[in-house]
């Protein structure tokens, strides 16, 4: 009895002061907001659209142009004569653009075998919480590359299409926490022309990659592609990168055994071995330009803030 009396006094007291307390206001507002119908998408699973050489599930935002320069030096073990690889350089320059919320395209040119490439990347499933709980995101990457290096046997009948390469890839990613994200990439690379009759045209591989944040603006990325039917004399590519983000730029310092930066080449044509010191240093630079103000169109905003 004594206990319930205390409870009674307590509750009455609480009720007297309770009405005017701003904390109740907070509670009421929370009720008013309710459970948001908007899905809470996992954002910034990775810092940029590439982990090192390979793609991530990130896409360029709609109306944004991403100008990318990838630069790779020579192998470290070429010694002091080549200044540990710094004398040699190979690059890929590309323009990549976000068409809408789920689709991006890109086109680039690589020094490596004088290759032109184009790709589309689309979001299939997005990791989200809220109304629906989806633990992973899935993207599709379709890429095509054309090697324009002169044919080694010009006296043969050569077809232009012999230089075509195709890549189909699923990017299955999950942002586990603010600092850790991981992805798995089942990949098919098709080569129109192979060197020997015994070589396979289709190479199946599975990539794995992850990132760990070191601070809010830096992280370390690791990426490995395992080839299931690996061609002879080819090595699986392994790469490590450090992302440094400064406003509109993302700078990636990369170390890899692959000379190329496009799917078919770094997955199925890598010959460098980490244990032999075939380590290639380099960097990726990304600079984004906003071509369309997302607030001007397609949003509920009746007016953008006057400036």
């Amino acid at each position: 009895m004594k206990q319930s009396l205390i409870t009674l006094i307590y509750i009455t007291f609480f009720h007297l002061i309770g009405v005017a307390q701003p904390d109740d206001l907070t509670k009421m507002m929370e009720e008013e907001m309710g459970a948001s119908n908007e899905p809470d998408y996992a954002s910034a699973t990775f810092k940029t659209t590439r982990l090192v050489n390979g793609h991530t599930n990130e896409q360029v935002a709609p109306g944004v142009l991403d100008f990318r320069i990838g630069h790779r030096f020579g192998a470290f073990n070429t010694g002091i004569y080549n200044f540990f690889g710094l004398d040699q350089a190979s690059m890929r320059m590309a323009f990549e653009y976000g068409i809408n919320d789920w689709l991006m395209i890109g086109a680039g040119r690589s020094t490596y075998q004088k290759t032109y490439d184009g790709f589309v990347k689309a979001k299939i499933i997005r990791q989200q919480k809220g109304k629906r709980n989806i633990p992973i995101s899935i993207n599709y990457l379709g890429a095509m590359a054309v090697k324009t290096l002169k044919f080694s046997n010009p006296e043969n009948t050569n077809f232009y299409t012999s230089n075509f390469f195709y890549t189909h890839q699923l990017i299955i990613a999950r942002k586990f926490s603010e600092s850790f994200s991981f992805q798995v990439l089942p990949t098919l690379v098709h080569r129109n022309l192979v060197e020997k009759i015994t070589d396979e045209h289709d190479i199946y591989s599975i990539g794995v990659g992850g990132r760990m944040k070191l601070s809010k603006r830096t992280c370390v990325n690791v990426e490995y592609f395992y080839q299931i039917n690996k061609p002879r004399d080819v090595i699986n590519s392994l790469a490590i990168a450090f992302d440094i983000e400064t406003g509109g730029h993302v700078f990636q310092l990369a170390f890899t055994n692959a000379a190329a930066m496009i799917e078919h080449a770094f997955i199925t044509q890598t010959t460098g071995r980490w244990d032999k010191g075939d380590i290639i240093g380099g960097f990726n630079l990304s600079r984004v330009f906003t071509l369309k103000d997302p607030r001007k169109k397609g949003t509920k905003n009746e007016d953008a803030p006057s400036k």
Binding site: A20, P22, L25, T26, M28, M29, E30, E32, M33, S36, E38, D40, S43, A44, A61, P62, G63, V64, G98, K216, E245, G247, G248, V288, T290, D293, P294, R295, T299, N301
Partner: peptide, 24 residues
Amino acid sequence: DIGFMLLVKSFRFERALMEEHFNE
């Protein structure tokens, strides 16, 4: 009594990357 409440993720920026950095 007057109160305001909002979701931080619902802020819209001119630049998508700015919005990402704002949230992240």
